[in-house]
């Protein structure tokens, strides 16, 4: 899971990317975490905070050349409770597929596979996939999902902090 685009000795660069649409209730989880990080100001200038709709070329551009990229997205789960956070490494993220053969939407898994083929993966990629409950129309997260925002923000900060870097390399 190396990114050949990061030159040795270059300054550490991290990115936290919230994927989602804040007008589709819990799909706005990723953007809500990024918003909280912006408000708290707890990450340094070396960390880029970004929100995207998940369009693959835009997503790949955001993490290209990064040492660490943390992607935060809301997911559906038939078994886990709303607000439950799955922490996925690159290989697991590459396995995330959409339940359709259609090209109307390219899954996060396909985007990771494409980035790998293009040698445009970050050196470390972590996906925080939080289980959502309501993906209907309208603003605002459901209560259990909203309560998971601070913990996801804290974990994103930990992940982009050098002190945990060795854990990620493993």
């Amino acid at each position: 899971m190396s990114a050949g685009s990061v030159p040795p000795g270059a300054p550490r660069r991290c990115v936290v990317i919230g994927i989602g649409n804040d007008l589709r209730h819990d799909d706005g989880f990723g953007p809500a975490v990024v918003q909280l990080l912006r408000e708290e100001g707890t990450v340094g200038a070396e960390v880029t905070l970004a929100v995207t709709d998940g369009e693959p070329t835009g997503l790949i551009d955001l993490w290209t050349g990064a040492d660490v990229a943390v992607v935060i997205d809301a997911v559906l789960s038939p078994t886990d409770p709303p607000g439950y956070c799955h922490e996925l490494r690159c290989e697991e993220a590459a396995g995330l597929t959409a339940a359709t053969a259609s090209s109307h939407s390219v899954s996060l898994g396909s985007t990771v596979q494409l980035a790998r083929a293009l040698d445009r993966l970050p050196r470390v990629l972590v996906v925080l996939a939080v289980v959502g409950r309501d993906f209907g129309y309208g603003p605002g997260l459901s209560a259990l999902v909203a309560s998971a925002v601070p913990a996801a923000a804290r974990r994103a900060v930990e992940l982009v902090t050098a002190s945990v870097d060795h854990q990620l390399r493993g």
Partner: peptide, 17 residues
């Protein structure tokens, strides 16, 4: 797939993107 194509034709797929 395009992903398989990208492994052998990286510059071409980059141009498309």
């Amino acid at each position: 797939s395009a992903i398989d194509m990208a492994k052998d034709h990286r510059d071409v797929v980059e141009r498309g993107l």
